[in-house]
């Protein structure tokens, strides 16, 4: 397996958010600021890599019929670890991300990679797949978060560059949908040109 291709596919060709449309809920829910998007992306990457590791190591020990529940328990454990650790050491980020942290467990991206990749590939490939897809996801969330923060609050990672408020709709629900729609359109255009 071309490990470079394996790692890099998660950034553009098979980007979780812009191409595969996986993990939509947190994508829309937490990207009110660039920092929140980045935080969530990294938390998800941690869970993705760890669960890929464990699944690729135990894949032959798990009977076919119970693989989904087993994967879920494994993923849920890492999500809880992230929850507890964040609560203890990054309480502000924890409050911002709210309910979306436990929801990492139902992020179709994580279960999807465990099922489609880690359960069928080697330890190394699974680690790189997890890293690539996760960081690609984080990149997408940070981009969307940055766009929404710039347009909606007139700031980037907390640094305000205008006085007062921006176009508020972008930090609210409708703006999330609309911004993401246009970003996907952009990615479509780019992918079509290079296809």
């Amino acid at each position: 397996m071309n490990q470079w291709k394996n790692f890099s596919k998660g950034f553009f060709k098979e980007n979780a958010v812009f191409v595969l449309f996986l993990g939509m809920c947190p994508t829309l829910g937490v990207t009110t600021t660039a920092f929140n998007g980045l935080g969530m992306g990294l938390a998800t990457t941690f869970v993705l890599v760890m669960s890929n590791i464990v699944v690729s190591l135990v894949k032959n020990q798990i009977p076919e019929k119970v693989r989904i529940p087993s994967f879920i328990v494994i993923i849920a454990s890492f999500v809880t670890i992230v929850e507890l650790t964040m609560q203890a050491y990054l309480p502000d980020l924890f409050k911002q991300l709210g309910i979306f942290i436990p929801l990492i467990v139902v992020n179709c991206l994580v279960l999807g990679r465990a099922e489609a990749f880690a359960s069928k590939n080697s330890f190394l490939s699974s680690v790189l797949d997890g890293l690539g897809m996760g960081l690609g996801f984080a990149m997408a969330l940070t981009i969307l978060g940055t766009v929404r923060e710039i347009l909606g609050s007139g700031s980037v990672f907390g640094y305000k560059f205008i006085a007062g408020d921006g176009i508020l709709v972008f930090v609210l629900a409708p703006g999330a949908f609309i911004a993401l729609g246009y970003l996907i359109m952009l990615v479509n255009k780019i992918n079509n040109k290079t296809a």
Binding site: A173, P174, N188
Partner: peptide, 20 residues
């Protein structure tokens, strides 16, 4: 470029705006 998912999301956004 807008066909499929992008236009779906933009429509959802307008629907969300209406629900506000």
């Amino acid at each position: 470029p807008l066909k499929g998912v992008p236009i779906a999301f933009i429509t959802a956004g307008l629907l969300a705006l209406a629900f506000m």
